[in-house]
Amino acid sequence: MIARILAIAGTEARIALRNRWVLMATLIMTLFALALTFAGSAPTGALGVDLLTVAVASMTTLSVYLAPLLALMISFDSIAGEAERGSLALLLSYPVSRAELLLGKFLAHLGALAFAMTIGFGAAGAITAAMGGASPESLIALFRLIVTSVILGAAFLAIGYALSALAGSATAAAGLAAGGWLILVVLYDLGLLGAVVLDSGGVFTQRVFPWLMTANPADAFRLWNFAASDSVALASGMAGAAKGLPFWAAPLSLLLWPVAALALARLAFARVEP
């Protein structure tokens, strides 16, 4: 079983390298991370935190959008595209299970994503440290940002596979992925914001809102990063959002998402007739 998962993962990793996906993703991450680091170098004095802390706060906000986007871009084609090209039927005529196929692709794609995140955010950390703008605390916040970004990416990889299995064609899968990104990353928050405004500080805002926010992987990612570091939260202006929740809620939600979405993807994959 392990041998077959690794065989699939090795092939997928090779494909991601050859079609320059890894290069492009790494370039995008690095450019954005560096741009935000230098753009954030102005307000450090006023807040009394170091340069890297401000950079981590901006990069957290960036990663909320970029990690799901990159993950969906690499995963949406995985099942629908292979089924359409006829390569899925041939693969599944071999003694490899659908779960093994899914896990192999997941391993390779997660590796590619982790590489891009580590290089991109790591470059920002290295440059600020060289400029004397980093502290042990802000380096830990950076490390947390990298790890949680990879977990957030893992969640959206699995969501991408599930949508790919549900879609009838690669084109439909691309549409579903774009829609999924828009709903989970943008519209969900707008909806919650609207509800909070209408509720004007009532029971919903006090009790329900924090949990609804944690249930979304992108928000759980944000909450985890801001709750774990007061100075990052201060720099982002989101200090209050996480107060109503136990400390484990956001990490648990973010960690559960990849597992649950992979299970969902496996179920949806079972219905695919290549």
């Binding site: 041998a3 065989a7 699939i8 090795g10 092939t11 090779r14 494909i15 006829g86 039927a89 071999y94």
Partner: peptide
């Protein structure tokens, strides 16, 4: 069982050898 689909589509960025090695590993 061995199977040859009507129109085989392999991944175009792999080499023929790499593609065949993948199948050999899957077949054990």
């Amino acid at each position: 069982t061995a199977y040859l689909p009507e129109s085989v589509a392999f991944h175009k960025s792999l080499t023929g050898r790499e593609q065949l090695i993948l199948f050999a590993r899957l077949a054990g």
